[in-house]
Design a protein around this nucleic acid. Structure first.
Lengths: 238, 238
DNA sequence: ACAGAATGTTAATAGTTGTTAACCAAATGA
DNA sequence: TCATTTGGTTAACAACTATTAACATTCTGT
């Protein structure tokens, strides 16, 4: 299966254009897919939609508070966050605030150091992920998904088989419970294609999955719709 | 299992054409079957489809990340992976080996060294395999396959004989449980021919095997279909 | 060369996935 | 508030992919 994103995708949020371009060029030369933003504007959306692995976030942004942004991101997404700050005392404050960032760097920094931290973070995230994947099964609201047999079982009902698409979608939800997942992102994860506006592929897949797992698929309890955003897996996963 | 040809099949993934041609020529002179790719594009597919023994994978590929590629390969296939890196960066080394690569070479390297490592890896893989093969039998979901007598027995039912094709197919599945095997690949392993689209040979063989080993061949539990991909042996093998 | 078995091929059937469009619900703005 | 717009749901269908029975061919042992 050819992945859209075999390259890791990083986002640089930094208001100083020179610094930004320098970091971007460095990461591009290391074969990263690089996105940039000069302020925090719109990065929520960008991250939710385009499978970004790590954000390098400058704290001192014009207008927006970088810390607030970091908090939002760590609440709403599973993206890796590396905070960049000009002052080391500020970093102390951040650590105290337990904001959800995964790592931090103080200016001035060596691009190599930043790269090393990014690599390290990606590796940490991936080994978390593969620990997830190595589980035999996952349970949620009465159902148990058998990952090796690709089927669902429940205590109340019979075993249920899932189609490939339904299985992939459900696995994706189970890996990110409690986060709103956008169509763009789901499309990339499930079908390895990019989503184009007005496409209903994901909606139909959600419909079919709901018909199988929801008690009343017209009043879904497990996979919720977030209007204008995407879908949200609302059950606890064990 | 005897390969199509007595020669081993290696894949060189390297963007520098001169280096690639040099390595290729060297391996060809040593009677290897050599495939080449200048970027990671499509090698997933190539490996899934054409019985490659070892991939030599340059980490610094244009556009694609060799490490990510290595991870995908080691998750989805049982191919041997040797990473080639321009830098002796310790991080790369650690990540590489953690990610599922089998060996590691730094540039500049002597082709003889690379050859030695490839030979070594093939030997390791073969001794793993022959440990497999030296087993008298393999068991899975109630069945025991007697490898020397080429027959199946179970506690509940009578002994069952398998045809050559069914036996080869089953052995192939038993050697790669939990991996989705493509028709192309199965075709090469089982019948030693190449698969052409719309051919149903493998499907029919799977059908016949299912009829013998599945409780309900219309709702298979052991050999699963992965729509658009291939077949997957879903039982645990001991 | 023959019988019988194994294997390969074909085509009708069944199932999965993607697309469309009609319909319904939520947000928006006079 | 109601009309309008935007976004979500869903059935129906089209395109694609897998299953399977029946038949054709090849292989094997005598």
């Amino acid at each position: 299966m050819t992945d859209t994103s075999s390259t890791h995708h990083v986002l640089i949020v930094e208001d100083d254009e020179v610094t930004r371009a320098r970091i971007a060029a460095y990461f591009e030369s290391e074969n990263y897919r690089v996105s940039q933003s000069e302020d925090g504007e719109g990065i929520n959306r960008l991250i939710a939609e385009s499978a970004i692995d790590v954000v390098m976030l400058d704290i001192n942004l014009p207008g927006k508070d970088g810390l607030q942004l970091a908090r939002e991101l760590s609440e709403k997404t599973d993206v890796g966050i590396i905070l960049v700050s000009a002052r080391s005392d500020e970093i102390d404050r951040i650590i105290g605030l337990e904001i959800g960032a995964d790592d931090y760097v103080t200016k001035p920094f060596n691009p190599r150091e930043l790269l090393a931290r990014v690599k390290n973070l990606i590796r940490r995230k991936q080994s978390d992920q593969s620990r997830h994947q190595n589980q035999r099964s996952k349970s949620f609201s009465g159902w148990t998904l058998d990952l090796s047999r690709r089927c669902l079982s429940s205590n109340t009902q019979d075993k249920l088989s899932l189609t490939r698409g339904e299985f992939e979608l459900l696995v994706t939800f189970l890996e990110h419970p409690g986060k709103t997942l956008h169509r763009e992102w789901l499309m990339e994860k499930v079908t390895h294609r990019v989503w184009s506006p007005n496409e209903r592929t994901i909606d139909v897949l959600v419909l079919r999955l709901r018909n199988k797992i929801e008690q009343d698929s017209h009043a879904p309890q497990i996979i919720l719709t977030v209007h204008g955003e995407g879908y949200l897996f609302a059950s606890e996963v064990l």
